[in-house]
Structures are given as C-alpha cells and as structure tokens.
Simulated assay, not measured.
Amino acid sequence: MNDTPEITARSWLMILTLGLVWGGTFMFQSLALRTTPPFWVATARIGFAMVLTFLVWRWRGGRLFTTANTDYPRLIAVSVLSSAIPFMFLSWGQQYVTSAFAGVSMATVALFVLPLAHVLVPGERMTLRRSLGFVMGFAGVLILLGPEVFQSSGDDREVWGRLACFSAAFCYAISSIMIRRLPPIDPFGLTFATLGFGLLLVLPVATLAHGAPPNPGSQGLMILALLGLVPTAGANLLRILTIRSAGPVFMSLTNYLVPLFAVLLGATFLSEPLPNSLITAMALILCGVGLSQFGALRRLFAGRT
C-alpha cells in the first residue's frame, strides 16, 4: 500500500454512496429503537453484519493479514473503536436526540481527523487551501447545528445524548487513522474482524444492561437486519477500501454529506423539523469540501483518474 493517497473518480463515487447510506442509517435506527433497547440495536447491527461478511470473507479465501507482519492489538483496538463503542454510543444517544442531530454530529469526524492525520499519516498535510476549506465546512456545520435544529427541552438526558453522538464521532476519527496504519490486510478479512471483535464487547454489555434479547416483531426484525446488512456490512467494507486507497482525510469528507442526507431523510420520512439554515449550511459545506480537495477535483476533471 502506498503512503500517498490516490484519489480518483471512483473515490468520489464511494464517498457519495457512503454519505447517502449512512445518512439514512440514523432514520432507520430511530425506527429500530421503538421496538428494541439501544445496546441490543447495536448488537443486532453488528451480528447481522458479521454473518454476511464472514460468508463473503470465507468465500474469498478466508485470509486476514496478507504478509508475515501482523498487529492484532491494533486490529482489536480498531474493531472496538469502529464498531462496538460508536454503535453503542449512537444507539443510546438516539433515544434522546433526533436522527438529524445524530447525522449532523458525524460531520465532526472531519474535525478530529485532520490534525491527527497531519501528525500521523504521511502525505496528509494541513495545507493553507485545505485549512481554509476545513474552516468553511466547519462554519457550515455550525450553522446546521443552530438553534432551529437543537432546541433543548431542558432535559439532561438530551445533553448526554448529544455528548454520546459526538463521542461516537471521535471514535470513528481515531479508528480511521488506525486502519490506515495497519499492516497489509485483506479488506474483507478486516471488515469481518472489526465486526467479530466488536461483537465480543457489545453482546455482554447488552445482556448486562437490558437482559435477554427482546422480540421486536417481524417489522422490527426487518429493520434491524437492514441496519446490519446495508450500512454496517456493506458500507463498512466500502469505508475501509476508501480509507486505504484515498486516505482518512478524504474519507472524512463523507461526514460532511451524512448530515445533509440525515436531515433531509428525517424531515421527509420522520416529520422531523427542517431547519431554515439548511440551504446556507449545505452551500458552505459543499464549497468547503471542494476547496479542501481542489487539487483532486482539478485532476479529476482533467481526466487524470
């Protein structure tokens, strides 16, 4: 794997797909929480996803590290920080915040990733243009996080719910850097491993917190399966491929798209209030994304893919 990220037209397509899929995740997770306790929602997501990725992994040969260089402690840490802990944080937090808030909070992953990558990842430098784009995108996020979106009810649980969502974003940022720094590893094996190790943590937590698994009914079970198979299994693999080819900073741009889709889907299907600041925030975020990746866009439109 090259240390310098390679950004192509395929990279842009992948982050757009991830933005849409993950933006819809919060809407479906809100629906799942109507029938299932939060930590069992996280367990079901990981469990369904793990079964699918295990089958795909075994079908492709069942290999994990592709060289003699292994790093299981880092792999376990990646697993905990990219699946178990953030899934539990988000499921618990969404009891008290809207799906739009949860989606918007994911944009803060970019804020955590940029300085970490600048220090830890070769080829990921905080240039002036990238910094200006970052500031512009952050301004859009602040507008999107305005009073129309976050009118507090005065309930402390809402405050803790917000903190849980931002804690999940911090976990994703750290795991993005750690995935990039893993030794050569099969992407399918990495996807299965992150879910498998994650399940070993979340399953006993769910049992201790909520007791035996509930019966969510056929519709609830279908929603849980959807959460596991699409945004968890499929999108997790796509996330890993994007990080290892285009780098964690480029991958973090997906988290600017996630809140936009989350707000729109929540307003359309869950009747969540649509903030008046959405259009302004969307323009700032997209302009910030374009400015921070101007070099990649120029190569893309010049046909250098």
Rank of each mutant, 00 (worst) to 15 (best):
Q219P: 00
A262Q: 04
V230K: 08
P248E: 11
S271T: 08
P275D: 07
A262S: 14
W59H: 14
S245E: 15
A206Q: 00
I143H: 05
P216H: 09
M178D: 03
S176P: 12
L145K: 04
R34C: 08
V149G: 00
L75M: 11
F134L: 12
S175A: 14
G290I: 04
A102W: 01
G103H: 03
G137F: 02
L114S: 07
C165H: 02
P248C: 15
D186S: 14
A117V: 03
F39I: 01
S175W: 04
A296T: 09
F134D: 03
I7P: 03
P38A: 07
M1C: 09
F89I: 01
R63C: 12
G161I: 01
R130W: 10
R129S: 12
M251H: 14
A77T: 14
M136T: 15
G247H: 12
V202P: 00
L120D: 06
L241I: 14
A267T: 10
L144M: 13
S105P: 06
L64H: 04
R63G: 13
F269N: 01
L75Y: 04
G217H: 12
T8P: 04
Q29H: 06
T17R: 06
I243H: 06
L274P: 01
S277P: 01
V56I: 15
A42D: 09
C287Q: 13
M1N: 12
L163M: 09
A246I: 04
T254H: 03
T280H: 13
S11F: 13
P216D: 08
D3R: 13
N215E: 15
G198Y: 04
L278F: 15
L200E: 00
F28S: 03
I7M: 07
F294Y: 15
A209G: 07
A107C: 08
G266D: 07
D71F: 06
F112S: 11
A117M: 03
N2V: 05
P37W: 10
M14R: 10
I285C: 03
G220L: 09
F138Y: 12
I185F: 04
L270H: 00
L253V: 14
V104H: 00
A49V: 06
R129E: 11
P248L: 12
L199V: 02
R63L: 13
V97H: 01
W92Q: 10
F294D: 12
A110D: 10
R157D: 08
Q94W: 00
L90I: 10
G103L: 02
V121A: 07
V230P: 07
T43E: 06
S83Q: 09
R129Y: 09
G234L: 14
P248D: 12
R162P: 00
E148F: 03
R162C: 01
P37Y: 05
R298N: 09
M50A: 15
F261S: 09
A302C: 06
T108H: 11
F134A: 12
I223C: 02
G290D: 06
P213F: 06
V149N: 05
T17H: 05
N69F: 10
R299H: 13
